[in-house]
Design a protein around this nucleic acid. Structure first.
Lengths: 202, 202, 202, 202
DNA sequence: CATGAATGAGCGTTCATTCAT
DNA sequence: AATGAATGAACGCTCATTCAT
């Protein structure tokens, strides 16, 4: 299908790219997106700034690759959850695990949020939409079983997606000790927002 | 009082400043905060870049004035609402009116969100926190009357505040015709998230 | 002779020019030559910056006029001294009176020194040389009477002229109480430098 | 000691820095301190203006390095003088060699004087004062041996220090052929100014 | 005469990107 | 594959000067 999509990179090139991506994540998390220059990324990786340009077409390219890397990891991590026995429970579980992931991968998730909203609006719509699409699908199913309230799944999905982007910042300004409680409260909010009310089943 | 807080500006100067602020809003909404340079703002206003420096002390000053202008308008618009007869209704009304305001003032609200989260100066923490504090107060009251669910008001407030920042973008990617439906759905989400469940009263 | 040298200025124009020149002196003395902008001068005179451009051809012109003004006053003040009975005494008297003038007209003399050495090297050579020429003439006369040492009058004149330019700064960094002692020491230095040694008369 | 004081520069970088410093000296000597912009320095060195910022932290840094470079050369050159057999002879020798150095290094010495009095940073007070302090010490010693007149050494030192700053300009406006005569006359002036009069010993 | 709004050239500085090595 | 010297465009900002009022 797309034969020229993967430029066949050597092992050494692949590891340099990975190293640079990690340095980018660290730099964004530490200094913020705007203050993340090639020079600073290079310093983090103990390489020269020119090398970044050598391995990536442009700063935008680097940011897109970094974004993709973080999203892929997140997707993977979110994938293997326990088998829930109801849609609301599945949602709650997913949200809780998401917050947990944010606590455990502060830098990545901080970088993720910053790139998503600060990078020059590229074709990101694709991936972003992908997350949302799955979510829409999930909500719709839950609704068809009467387990979710009759709300527009797309609106819920986008609200939730956006909210997820703020979790790292929210965690950052709370003491570690409160993170668990926050996870619980935060998840409950969205479960309540979409769950069928108790009386509905009558 | 502070009699020297207002430097007594001439009518002409006041209108230029207003024009520049409007151009700033337009530029941010169109190109994003980061890409909003004096040159671009000047092009929008059909003036020279130097003139912006002539009327504002610095870029930071311009952004603060712009932020203040938008917030003042928003506050005013949100102030005169109808008298609601319950806390959930009050919340719903507030949220609906907020979305309506966003539709009617797309550029401003887009700029507002971007300045709020990208401007470097943290003096803004005051106002930002003020909004959230009012909200926390409001939720707490509603809870004491049993009209709101027993959730952490601070978490709800921050989630909602963040969500409000995304409304302009969400509206942007939907056809005008759906804005009303979006407002309804979006508001309902947060009302449901915090409202006491129907069975609670029993 | 030079009919177009004096452009015949109205009374009001003449006083504005004088006012601006005074403001220029004050501004230079207070903020230093480099930091002396039209805006600052204007603030000192409580007028608009544009008015300065209206009354003077350019910044360079203003500085030249200011320079001339100060030099003319200095010349006048230095002119009316007592009748000395020897060349060395005349020199000593002149130098002492010069230092006294500097203490009494700090701003002017500070501005004078700064303009002289910081202004874009114009045709200042003329006036500067004039001072020196008189001095050369005076020294030569004294030498012909055997009252001054046989040194190159031109070298002495230029050294002294330059030294005079530093007097305001030197006074500034000494307490007022020491000014008189400084005047004495400083004058003696140059008198000794050029005076015939005591044994010469034998 | 301070092992991290010298940032270990490559040979190429060191030569570029040297080249830029030379260009700075030339530019100051040619156009004056105030008119010495990065653009002009760059033009002198046939490089881009940005390269100066690449090699020096700021304009102030460049000027400090330039100042230090010139002072170091001057100190070195002035250091190795002949062994004089009296204080006045030592002074005379020092002054003569100073003037000679000025003739041979016009640009440097012109730049030196200008940077010293125009550079904004007062960190220089140290070195400047050091020169004067040494001089005061030297004069005091000579006085204690009865070889120098009983004048305030501090006044003499400041007058001489200031005068030294004018030597390059004085040389500039005299034909090369007269430089030696100027050196002799100029030095004699200050030696006479401070030397004990011949009759004092009787 | 005088204002002050407006311009435009120039400033020092930053930074992604290029390229000789 | 990697460096780091070098560029050039763009940035926010300053200021003498112009000109409509």
């Amino acid at each position: 299908m797309q034969p020229n999509k993967e430029p066949k990179r050597s092992f050494i090139e692949e590891s340099r790219r990975a190293q640079i991506v990690e340095a980018t994540i660290a730099a964004i998390a530490e200094h913020g997106y705007t203050a993340t220059t090639f020079t600073r990324i290079a310093r983090h990786a103990a390489i020269s700034a020119g090398l970044i340009s050598y391995h990536f077409e442009s700063k935008e390219d680097l940011m897109n690759v970094t974004l993709g890397t973080i999203e892929r990891r997140l997707d993977t991590a979110m994938g293997d959850g326990p088998e829930p026995d109801s849609y609301p429970q599945a949602l709650k579980s997913m949200l809780t695990r998401y917050v947990a992931y944010c606590t455990e991968h502060k830098q990545e998730m901080s970088a993720l949020a910053q790139i998503r909203q600060q990078a020059p609006h590229p074709s990101r719509a694709g991936r972003d939409g992908a997350d949302a699409d799955e979510l829409v699908q999930f909500i719709s199913e839950g609704q068809s079983y009467g387990q979710f309230r009759d709300a527009d799944p797309a609106v819920f999905a986008s609200v939730l997606t956006n909210a997820m982007g703020h979790v790292p910042r929210e965690l950052e300004r709370r003491p570690e000790a409160e993170h668990e409680e926050f996870a619980s409260q935060w998840s409950a909010l969205f479960v309540n927002a979409i769950s069928a009310s108790e009386g509905d089943g009558s």
